[in-house]
Design a binder for these strands. Structure first.
Lengths: 226, 226
DNA sequence: CGCGCGGAAAATATCGACTTTTCCACGCGG
DNA sequence: CCGCGTGGAAAAGTCGATATTTTCCGCGCG
């Protein structure tokens, strides 16, 4: 029994890993509000584990820019601001442009197929009411870049994705995010990528981000943010 | 006494911070070889502290791409490779170009003065035998970018600097690094930055990196690396 | 009435020991 | 002679407790 341990909770080996994933999910989803104090003891109870895994997980999240460490005063969820949001958007554009171009240039057939598959799964989840949509959405975006032989770059992109999506959740649980025509946008990006039209794909992707960005900026101005 | 705590060892508050800085220095300086196993107990002795700060420091270093975590098998110093080195160089060029341009565009007089000061100190250290040169070299490079209002970007640049300089140490303790005309290059970059000539400054900076990169790649091919 | 000082309460950071997992070498069986 | 399974040692991971630091609140002094 190796992969057959998913009884109630996914149990990836170490308690640290579990705590890391759980906390990241809580922060990204906005269940832990920006600036909120992260008390070790509280989290210890909430996640049913010891203090060491919690501390380690928080350290990891610190380097992901999702948690801030205050010298001898513990941890808190990262603050949000319009400037921070803009920076994330800008960095993401720069880095994903580069990653996407390299991915398209180097991608083989296996990449292409994995990409189509990721897109299909995402579409499927969306049509069926959005259950489990979020992880698949991220999977699709990362699948676009996956063929780039640049581990650090991909890691940065993954981090920035999480930071960015956090704002979407904060803007209102992603309510009617899908109301905009993201479906079509995703489809167009997929098509361009599969056709190896790097310029087109990149332009579409950046437009996708810029548009989502303005959309969110509008929502954020309405009080969800200082 | 805020900045006056450098008696024997820098003693910044927490044991975690101390362990983090010490380990990072060891890895960057190459005293811990790439791929080397990082045994908790060994480090515990070496740094005279408990296991918790060590683990936490290693977690932080993991996110800096200086340490790799192996699921239930502990930690090891990050491996090195030509591909990894190339990626660092490439990313650094992209990100520092952007950061430098924004820094030059936004920098005020205080920034200019801090920059000149950082350069002077670095020069001074180099002339006097290179004592404490490394931290000042990093300080100068970061001072160039400091006026960019982009904390995440600057953090990435700082990380990439460390990753990059690690290769220089591995290539032979930075032996005759200064034999190349870095002094003049630094001076030219400083001048261009102070004169707010973004294009020139950026071009010089990238050339600086590219040149250092080829230089190191040459050294690394000679067996210091697989 | 406001400011600053002290002491109590809480939270963090750190340590030392326990539990679980992994690694390595030895010996048995094919 | 080589592969496989077993057993012991070592290391990682985790837990609970302790000590140190910070924070908060009320009291007295200016």
């Amino acid at each position: 029994m190796d992969q057959f341990v998913s009884k109630d909770e996914a149990a990836p080996g170490s308690a640290t890993q579990r705590a890391y994933l759980a906390l990241r999910a809580l922060i990204v989803a906005g269940e832990i509000r920006p600036g909120e104090k992260l008390k070790i003891d509280g989290l210890r109870q909430r996640l049913a584990t010891g203090a060491s895994p919690i501390r380690e997980a928080l350290s990891l999240l610190t380097s992901d820019n999702l948690v801030e460490r205050i010298d001898q005063r513990g941890f808190r969820a990262a603050e949000v601001s319009a400037a921070n949001f803009q920076e994330i958007l800008r960095l993401r554009s720069t880095l994903e442009d580069q990653a996407l171009r390299e991915s398209i240039a180097r991608g083989d057939q296996a990449w292409e197929e994995a990409l189509v598959l990721a897109h299909h799964r995402m579409q499927r989840a969306q049509e069926q009411g959005g259950d489990g949509f979020e992880p698949l959405h991220k999977a699709f975006h990362m699948a676009l870049l996956a063929a780039a032989a640049a581990p650090i770059l991909l890691k940065f992109c993954s981090q920035l994705y999480d930071l960015n999506i956090r704002y979407r959740f904060l803007a209102g649980r992603g309510r009617d995010y899908q109301s905009r025509d993201v479906t079509e946008e995703h489809g167009a990006i997929l098509a361009a990528a599969v056709d190896r039209q790097a310029d087109t794909a990149s332009a579409l992707l950046l437009a996708h981000y810029t548009r989502t960005g303005s959309y969110l900026a509008g929502l954020l101005d309405d009080g969800a943010l200082g």
